[in-house]
């Protein structure tokens, strides 16, 4: 479903070229719970951004459901992200002027889901994540863990095919991080949502069904749960 074909990504900063990804090829199938692991600068976030259509490769192809993302306009990419992808970022994921429930509703609002239906689904999802009492709180009134759970709720409430999570546990204590991973694994098992993480958190790597290890913009190992 997600595929990188011979992708190169070069950042040019004032004449100095940085090769973030070099000849990267990777395929993520439906229903996987995959981690991109590696040290800082290995290309994890760059690859996630390319899969999410947030950035363009310098060369090579990124395909989502066999569609080349390079052929899409900005508006079409936004539509793809809206319909097929969910994002969870490291921190400060939420829109500060919206309450928890409004943040979760927002993607469905963009999708054109009727008001009553999106309110029902958003409150249901927040309740499922143990945030039923906090629906009317703004992000600044929530703890880091609560904010990340709201972000996960927003990412999955519209039932995307894939959730791309960039170091989602980086700012969380181990208990909160564990709870969040439990939740994502449940979503993966019960709803078949594909998860692709970037992380160097051993706790996340331990739980992954597949770990793709990156170094200097290349895949250095691709391990499944049995081989881990």
């Amino acid at each position: 479903m997600l595929e990188a074909r011979a992708v190169h990504k070069v950042y040019d900063s004032r004449g100095a070229e940085t090769h973030a990804l070099s000849d990267m090829s990777l395929r993520i199938s439906e229903g996987e719970f995959t981690v991109l692991a590696g040290p800082s600068g290995s290309g994890k976030t760059t690859l996630l951004n390319l899969f999410g259509g947030l950035d363009e490769p310098t060369s090579g192809q990124i395909r989502l459901d066999d569609q080349d993302l390079a052929a899409c306009t900005r508006s079409e990419l936004a539509e793809l992200r809206l319909r097929k992808l969910g994002f969870v970022f490291q921190a400060y994921n939420l829109i500060p002027v919206l309450t928890a429930v409004e943040n979760v509703e927002f993607v469905m609002e963009l999708q054109g889901v009727a008001r009553a239906e999106r309110r029902r689904r958003a409150t249901g999802m927040l309740a499922e994540l143990g945030l039923g009492e906090l629906t009317s709180k703004r992000p600044l009134e929530l703890s880091g863990g609560q904010q990340q759970r709201v972000a996960v709720a927003r990412a999955i409430v519209s039932q995307p095919r894939v959730v791309l999570a960039d170091e989602p546990t980086a700012n969380l204590d181990s208990t909160t991080a564990g709870g969040l991973l439990d939740l994502m694994q449940t979503m993966n098992r019960e709803r078949g949502v594909t998860f692709l993480f970037s992380t160097h958190d051993p706790m996340v790597i331990e739980r992954a069904a597949r770990v793709v290890r990156l170094r200097d913009g290349r895949v250095v190992a691709d391990e499944t749960a049995t081989s881990l």
């Binding site: 947030l54 508006s75 539509e79 992200r81 809206l82 970022f89 400060y92 829109i95 993607v107 963009l110």
Partner: peptide, 16 residues
Amino acid sequence: IRELGILMAIGMKPGR
């Protein structure tokens, strides 16, 4: 900037 980036990342189109 970050907030607008997140809005775009979750599917907000340029027109919006």
